[in-house]
Nucleic acid binder design. Structure first.
Lengths: 117, 117
DNA sequence: ACGCTATATGACTAGTCGGTTATTTAACTC
DNA sequence: GAGTTAAATAACCGACTAGTCATATAGCGT
């Protein structure tokens, strides 16, 4: 088959758990243990493997503190992703301001969805 | 295992071929056949399956024209993705202008791609 | 040194992914 | 209708994913 794809950001964020970890770290650095504690349905090695992917794809940084590992988000790692999505902004409703409004409206109208241009 | 994840945009764009298809469609609508022709290393059913994923995740629209299927990008489908990434922008260097500069610098610094607006 | 705590790694596994070839569906042309 | 073209689906397969449990690594406190 293929998959010589050398794990990248797109792969990293394709998993909901990894996105949740990033979302968690967006609120501040945390130790591996603290992260594990936030995912009661997964085991410690399970989270550890996700953290490895995030490390490998440069989405997080780790610092050693005694036996602990402190994980910090490295949002620059999302630059490639942002860069890719940004290409499509031009096709969006209109300018960035319009986009903001669009997203707001989308968030607001969760149920009401019959407005069709 | 798990994966009750109901294929979403994050999954859709995790595959390089699907991203390439979207990039292609960003240049204008194309028939399925025209898309297939752009990927000589893949077979028609292979591309067809990718197109199905893009359809299911609402990233493209299809219109029927005789036996042909005309695929059109639906960039609103990327809104969720954009929304997610946007959360991290605040942690980026700074404002959008700064981000632009950051990306430009990044593009220039690495392997000078063909991005000049 | 010993045991405890924190985390990573190894070995294994079920399920999914991306690809293939073969077939089906459907609309057009003659 | 018969043949052709366009695209989707079916059936299958190897590779990879995401998870598990068990074990290893390593720093800490006594």
């Amino acid at each position: 088959m293929r998959t010589i794809v050398t794990k990248n950001v797109f792969f990293a964020i394709s998993d909901p758990t990894r996105r949740a970890v990033l979302d968690l770290l967006a609120g501040g650095s945390r130790t591996a243990g603290a992260i594990v504690a936030r995912f009661p349905r997964l085991t410690q090695p399970g989270i550890s493997k996700h953290l490895r992917v995030l490390r490998d794809t440069k989405l997080v940084d780790v610092t050693v503190r005694a036996q602990e590992r402190v994980y910090t988000i490295k949002p620059q790692g999302l630059a490639e992703l942002y860069e890719w999505v940004a290409k499509y902004q031009a096709m969006w409703p209109d300018t960035l301001e319009a986009l903001e409004r669009y997203l707001d409206a989308r968030a607001a109208g969760e149920k009401a969805r019959r407005k069709k241009r």
